[in-house]
Design a protein around this nucleic acid. Structure first.
Length: 389
DNA sequence: GATCCACGGGAATACACGGATG
DNA sequence: CATCCGTGTATTCCCGTGGATC
């Protein structure tokens, strides 16, 4: 725990005992340092990365698994550790004298959720490699790419780049050509949901690693661990954790989202612990399938602003895209034009953040309108968004 | 002056329906 | 009866502009 967290804990003890001690530990978008029970997958990945420990580059790889199976948690945890090992080439402040560290390849993690464009991709890879800030404006994409080549041309050992969420976003630049633009001493590890047979990158990989969904007991453990980190003692009954795990059917994201919503609901009700009604309500507001909250919170600022207004609307205001547009545009905090709000709604529906369901009420005239429905639990987004700002 | 990208705005296209037409 | 047409909405697509930054 860092100092801020320690101080905050003291500051927040006014109306103790607090049910929610630490939203961060509870958040479905945060990954903890030590994903539990994933030993075999770590071993498989380390087998693949093994050449690294001799100072060589591993081949390209594809890691895949269903939503909420812990792909991102595993890869981020692993890359965080590995990049700590290889800081020898860029940092002078290290006490360890093992010469081997200076010849270890570097590790960079980029997330396509935040790195959709070609420019952003090369920017983030480069930023992961150098200590000095990389400009985000005023420099061309081609320029950025050549800086990257320049930087790596002199490197002895190369870089391993993890690219998470390769099958999102739908509208991003073609991944294959982005990868082709990387220097030759870069090896990549793509992470996605699709089966290797259905995804173009797998044609360029030597290794494929599958991440299986969480088994029931593992998911219960995940929930109990999070509860003990983020909630007051004894706040989550083991039976309720099992109930959530059963419902989530192996998807850790959805399970954690339910826990988060239930905890927030219990806190609002001044409950000292999460009860069954909290869990029921949380499950009821979590759609299936549920889009990743990480994706929602990775959206551009103004799209999130629109969503923030959307989750507060009455059902009547969501009866059609036109009505929803009007309702959102009249919210004082929104200074976007109605046209833009509407376009955002259509775009987000296209990307599965929200859903348009065509109304069956035909009134004879024109094409029937679509009602807007959320693909994520609204109170989870509301809380996470408000904490962020 | 260059660059990226979010916005704004509007044109083009799709769809549903009732009524006219062959 | 099958098809086309006109009207009114909904939806998609596209591109120019401007703010922020280097």
């Amino acid at each position: 725990m860092d100092i801020d967290a320690r101080i905050n804990r003291r500051r927040n003890r006014d109306d103790s005992p607090r049910l929610v001690r630490e939203y961060e530990a509870l958040s479905p978008v945060a990954h903890i340092d030590e994903p539990s029970d994933r030993g075999p997958v770590f071993e498989e990945l380390l087998d693949h990365l093994d050449p690294v420990f001799d100072g060589r580059l591993p081949p390209n790889a594809y890691v895949y698994g269903p939503p909420g199976s812990g792909k991102s948690a595993i890869v981020t945890a692993l890359f965080a550790r590995l990049s700590r090992l290889s800081t020898g080439t860029r940092s002078v402040i290290h006490t360890n004298t093992r010469a081997a560290t200076t010849t270890t390849p570097q590790f960079v993690y980029v997330d396509r959720r935040e790195t959709a464009s070609e420019f952003a991709f090369y920017h983030d890879v480069l930023a992961g490699l150098v200590d000095e800030p990389v400009p985000e404006h005023g420099v061309s994409t081609a320029d950025l790419r050549s800086r990257l080549h320049e930087r790596l041309g002199s490197a002895r050992t190369g870089v391993v780049v993890a690219i998470d969420h390769v099958d999102e976003p739908a509208g991003g630049d073609d991944l294959i050509s982005l990868l082709a633009g990387l220097p030759s001493n870069v090896s990549w590890l793509a992470v996605g949901r699709a089966d290797p047979g259905d995804v173009a990158v797998s044609a360029y990989t030597a290794t494929v690693v599958r991440v299986a969904p969480y088994q029931r007991q593992m998911l219960v453990d995940v929930l109990m661990t999070r509860a003990s980190e983020g909630l007051a003692r004894q706040a989550l009954d083991h039976d309720l954790a099992r109930r959530i795990a059963d419902w989530a059917d192996g998807d850790a994201h959805d399970a954690l989202a339910v826990l988060f919503v239930a905890a927030d609901r219990a806190r609002e009700a001044d409950g000292g612990r999460i009860d069954e009604a909290d869990v029921d309500a949380a499950i009821a507001e979590t759609p299936q399938p549920c889009v990743s909250l990480g994706r929602v919170l990775g959206l551009p600022t103004n799209k999130q602003l629109v969503l923030r207004a959307l989750v507060d609307l009455e059902e009547a205001d969501r009866a059609s895209v036109a009505a929803t547009t009007e309702a959102i545009s009249s919210v004082p905090t929104i200074d976007l034009s109605p046209g833009t709000v509407k376009r955002f709604l259509y775009e987000m529906a296209e990307n599965g953040i929200i859903e348009r369901v065509e109304s069956e009420a035909r009134d004879g005239k024109g094409r029937p309108p679509s009602r807007i429905e959320l693909r994520f639990p609204p109170s989870a987004f509301r809380r996470l968004y408000d904490l962020q700002t």
